[in-house]
């Protein structure tokens, strides 16, 4: 038995040592990637302390794909960064928030895009590959991502374990290491608009789901209160924004009114502005959307200008 254990140790030891090196190699190359879904750029800017923004935008895809920082910057004469996360609710948006504050100077203003999905928790960690290069020994990620399927504590503490089964990420890392990539970053300061006409896929999926009631995750709601409280204490102004959605979307969710009441109530409680665009004229024109929840480029341009104008008019952004 002793001989076996020693032989096993001799065999495993180089694997363990090499695994750390390989982990660093994969992670370093992976975060060079500019390719889809383009999440690494935002995370890199956060962890390298390169955000340098006066105004930051939080939210889901309804933030990252609907508010153009260019337009806001031109209008407000401030530096703007869009931190919207595709397919993520407030739990992981908050993770991004604390990581951002940990490595960067705090912003003056947060534009918090909210909707009735903000507190509805999905089971999987959407586009989980974006977290991989930063996960090892990062206990903030562990704390906020552990309630999702797919990762365990081992992924956060043992090198390479989180890459087991992540074929696309490994492929991407090796191709970044050994092949020249001329791809430009997909996003500008976290933003990318979608220039396409109405796409039926999402509409079909939502019709398939039928009329439903949104159920909020209590922990996420509490975290939202905590976030507003912290921002108040740190003198960061928060403006809640409900970005446009195609008017027919309204028919699908039964407890919409409760959602709006909630956001009105918290904005009053914390003395924040709540800009609700759900009944804006944009919402009634299909030509501005590519699906019921997302504006196309034309819609984004129009809405971003409108938002910049309203922020300016209400003087919610401090110079």
């Amino acid at each position: 038995m002793r001989k076996f254990l020693i032989a096993l140790l001799y065999f495993i030891l180089p694997v363990v040592i090499a695994s750390y090196g390989l982990d660093v190699f994969i992670s370093k190359n992976l975060l060079k990637s500019n390719t889809s879904p383009g999440n690494y750029n935002a995370w890199n800017d956060i962890y390298k302390g390169q955000v340098n923004a006066d105004v930051v935008i939080y939210g889901s895809s309804r933030a990252s794909m609907q508010i153009d920082p260019h337009i806001l910057e031109d209008s407000l004469k401030l530096k703007v960064y869009n931190f919207g996360m595709l397919g993520h609710n407030f739990l992981t948006q908050y993770l991004r928030h604390i990581e951002y504050l940990k490595y960067n100077p705090q912003p003056k203003q947060i534009i918090m895009c909210v909707d009735y999905f903000s507190f509805e928790k999905r089971e999987d960690l959407y586009e989980s590959d974006q977290f991989l290069p930063y996960m090892l020994w990062n206990f903030n990620i562990w704390r906020y991502a552990k309630s999702y399927d797919g990762f365990s504590l081992l992924d956060h503490v043992v090198p390479l374990v989180r890459y087991v089964g992540k074929a696309t990420a490994k492929k991407k890392a090796f191709s970044m290491a050994f092949m020249k990539s001329n791809m430009k970053p997909l996003k500008y300061k976290g933003f990318k608009s979608t220039d396409k006409p109405w796409d039926k896929t999402m509409e079909e999926a939502r019709l398939k789901r039928g009329i439903y009631t949104i159920s909020n995750d209590t922990n996420t709601v509490n975290l939202f209160y905590q976030f507003l409280q912290e921002c108040e204490e740190q003198n960061i102004k928060v403006t809640l924004v409900y970005t446009p959605e195609y008017f027919e979307e309204k028919k699908l969710v039964l407890n919409r009114d409760e959602t709006f009441k909630f956001f009105k109530q918290v904005s009053t409680q914390y003395n924040n502005t709540f800009l609700n665009y759900v009944d804006d004229s944009i919402c009634y024109k299909k030509e501005y959307f590519y699906n019921s929840l997302h504006l196309n480029k034309k819609g984004v341009d129009l809405f971003s200008k409108k938002l910049a104008h309203d922020l300016k008019k209400l003087d919610v952004v401090e110079k």
Binding site: L160, V164, G165, A167
Partner: peptide, 8 residues
């Protein structure tokens, strides 16, 4: 095995 491991 490590390199080619995909979804479980």
């Amino acid at each position: 095995i490590f390199l080619f491991s995909g979804e479980e």
